[in-house]
């Protein structure tokens, strides 16, 4: 009897740290989900947006190239968002446009219009890890956020610039991601993404995205005016400078059909 009781106590003592760890892990996961859900909630409901921006492509030697683009986005509740991207510069590619229907965990649908060819082509690709518009952003970095696309874990709190941030780890749940995990810094005040670190398939720190100059639109939605993605493997970087952002512009589904590609100029 004594022996049994003694053994019970030893087992309890030995398992306590493991139990404590399990409880801690469950809490971290719940807190991670809560942070991501709150950030998503705060960013939902903008309905649509129109943005124009300059993309600066900087190579490892510091040489830069510029592109000017416009993006229209239509928020959708039943599926992923729709977006239309139109190139304004360089002049010889003006009017080249790409329409994207995002689908959460499924591959996106994309259509492309080349003005010189005057034909719309549908494009299908399962590659989410490929570069977006030849930049250091991957398609998956800029695709529509859906809560089910990742699993979450809160890591710690730490200062981030002028703010104090939650740091969470996101692990992609969709197929063919180029990352094993992502670390995201949300500021505690507004749940805005301040910094994101991307880790490749062997866990090496591959890229860092820094978001700056947040502006408030319609008194609710925060948008960064500057984004800089640095690829630590290649030494290349991409900067996005937003110069015009309009939320709730009254866009309709008609502006996101295949004919809209031809009209986009």
């Amino acid at each position: 009897m004594f022996a049994k009781k003694y053994m019970y106590l030893i087992t309890l003592a030995m398992s306590s740290p493991a139990l404590a760890q399990a409880v801690h892990d469950r809490d971290a996961v719940e807190k991670g989900i809560a942070i991501a859900a709150e950030a998503d909630r705060r960013d939902s409901g903008y309905v649509d947006s129109e943005e124009s921006f300059t993309m600066v492509l900087r190579d490892s030697k510091g040489r830069e190239r510029f592109r000017t683009l416009r993006t229209k986005t239509l928020e959708r509740t039943d599926d992923g968002d729709w977006s239309l991207t139109i190139f304004d510069e360089p002049a010889d590619v003006k009017g080249t446009a790409m329409l994207t229907y995002s689908h959460g965990l499924e591959p996106d649908d994309q259509w492309l219009y080349l003005p010189a060819l005057k034909r719309v082509k549908r494009i299908s690709s399962k590659n989410r890890s490929g570069p977006f518009m030849g930049s250091e952003f991957a398609f998956e970095d800029l695709s529509d956020f859906e809560l089910e696309k990742y699993s979450y874990r809160y890591l710690r709190d730490e200062p981030c610039g002028e703010h104090s941030c939650f740091v969470s780890e996101w692990v992609p749940a969709y197929e063919h991601s180029g990352y094993t995990r992502i670390e995201v810094w949300h500021d505690r005040e507004e749940y805005r993404e301040q910094k994101i670190e991307f880790y490749d398939k062997v866990g090496k720190h591959l890229k860092t995205l820094v978001l700056n100059d947040y502006s408030l639109y319609r008194e609710r939605f925060w948008r960064p005016l500057k984004m800089e993605m640095t690829n630590h493997k290649t030494g290349k970087a991409t900067l996005l400078h937003f110069n015009n952002i309009e939320l709730g512009a009254g866009l309709t589904e008609r502006e996101f059909d295949q004919n809209s590609l031809r009209r986009a100029k």
Binding site: P90, V93, T96, L112, L117, G134
Partner: peptide, 11 residues
């Protein structure tokens, strides 16, 4: 020019 852009933006 547009083919080259297409090639670039498609990765």
């Amino acid at each position: 020019a547009q083919y080259l852009l297409l090639y670039e933006i498609s990765g």
